[in-house]
Design a binder for these strands. Structure first.
Lengths: 274, 274
DNA sequence: CGTAGACTTGACACTACTCAATTGGAGTGG
DNA sequence: CCACTCCAATTGAGTAGTGTCAAGTCTACG
């Protein structure tokens, strides 16, 4: 493993921001993370970062831009499983699975870091708290998919749409990409339709209803949520599933057991900022 | 950690069967697993093993019986996220999350083992291959939820239903609970409806169509799939997402790095039975 | 033999889909 | 600077697929 130079002026990356909302990372952990994100590439919009059925390659971290994780049926019908935002990880399970059961495609130009899967095992051994934070991020991803399943199964078109907008707002806030109620939504209505299990026409009409009722405003790709509480209420949004609460004490007991290969001062109180 | 006595006659549990379909476990790993499943309880049907919003308790392993993992909206609408079958684990993320975003309720009488979450960290340190197999099982769970999302978003009622039946058949086969094309489906139509995002009436009509077309037979809770290939074709079922392929070589490199606290002969060829 | 829960079926309503036409911008080439 | 093109967004009209309501029917079981 190569350590990044101990420069103090490490930028805060979206991943660091996200993980920091969960637990307070030490300087050493932060540096290890920065090292993971060392190999950076840029990709244009509409690029496949991963393709359904293909073998997994490296693990990737989105540092900037949007992508979608989606699955397709043989006949072309498509479902967007989730939106991939800065700070999100692609192909975390590449160590466990042979080939991918979904595709990941960029919506905008993106900046992605990549590292070989072997480093995940290394991290579990050397920086268990960091590994736990990454596991939290992965588990949260599953929770989001389950919540979207609830949307498609039991929420109406209007509720689903409202719910998704609030979810994106919350997620973007964590990585400083939403201020007040507005953010950039670099997404066509076709993609929204594929995310919400609706037709393009119907998503269009649903957005119109939300606009007409004054809950949101749309100007090009900029969306403004005028009344988050009311929108959340329309979508029956309960942020429990985002698990934004700080790390439970339990975690320390489970992951920070007998030390090995690891000498960072780790007794910082994780709940200091809670 | 307490080791189970080294009796050779350890029963094969469903979890062991499931994990063995992924990698060949050593005798020591098998014994550790048996020890995890040492504390056993029985619960009657319609018991909540976990409740949405409640704090997580111990980790649990289903050894016998069926349960459902489900989420509810404030107004009572409900979505079944997945079926919990023997060999499945409940509350794996209890170390990472404070409270549960879903409920787990038994459908039949069940036999569950439980162990404190601390042991997961212990396992990562002492039996990394076993931990990896558990991670595989968890990642697979997410893949199933994503596939169901595709169903609810883009498959018709008939396709969804066919898909679910084939999925259950495949999953049950792994733990020896399905022979030829038939198995016990201890599930009311209401629950099927909640799993597939349909109304009870419509699920009933859809099952009728499947029966009338001769693809399946239903006798009480016994379901017989007459033509798996054709049913899979109706449901556009592609088992890629179940990741039933044996462990990739990559895994060894990542998880079986520098040894510590672990001296079991691990050089068994994982792909021996492949 | 009576009751309760699950299953079935018919009739009808409604959500969301399809088809089709139109509008609106952003880019491109003359 | 103005057609022209392309793609996304809109809107209308008609329909298909599902949901709702309501009335049975079946089966298990006390």
């Amino acid at each position: 493993m190569t350590r990044a130079p101990a420069s103090r002026a490490l930028d805060t990356t979206p991943l660091w921001l996200k993980l920091s909302s969960y637990l307070v990372l030490s300087e050493e952990e932060k540096m290890y993370l920065a090292d993971l994100e060392r190999t950076i590439a840029r990709e244009p919009p509409r690029t496949d970062l991963l393709q359904q059925g293909e073998k997994y390659r490296d693990v990737r971290i989105i540092r900037d831009g949007w992508a979608i994780r989606h699955k397709a049926l043989p006949d072309g019908r498509r479902q967007v499983v989730n939106f991939v935002l800065p700070g999100d990880i692609i192909g975390m399970y590449c160590t466990l699975f042979e080939s991918a059961d979904h595709s990941v495609t960029t919506l905008t130009a993106v900046e992605v870091a990549s590292f070989p899967p072997e480093r995940i095992g290394e991290m579990f051994r050397s920086f268990p708290r960091l590994a736990a934070a990454l596991a939290w991020s992965g588990a949260r991803e599953e929770a989001m998919v389950a919540e979207r399943l609830l949307s498609l199964g039991r929420r109406t078109a209007l509720e689903r749409t409202a719910h998704l907008i609030v979810e994106l707002l919350r997620r973007l806030s964590v990585v400083n990409m939403a201020t007040d109620g507005h953010f950039v939504l670099p997404v066509t209505q076709e993609i929204l339709a594929d995310a919400l299990g609706l037709s393009i026409v119907h998503i269009n009409r649903t957005l119109r209803r939300l606009r007409d009722s004054g809950l949101i405003e749309l100007n090009g790709q900029r969306i403004t949520v005028n009344d988050v509480r009311q929108l959340a209420s329309v979508g029956q949004f309960d942020e429990l599933y985002l698990h934004l609460i700080r790390v439970p004490k339990r975690l320390e007991r489970a992951f920070a057991g007998p030390r090995h290969q690891n000498n960072n001062k780790r007794e910082d109180d994780d709940r200091a900022k809670a």
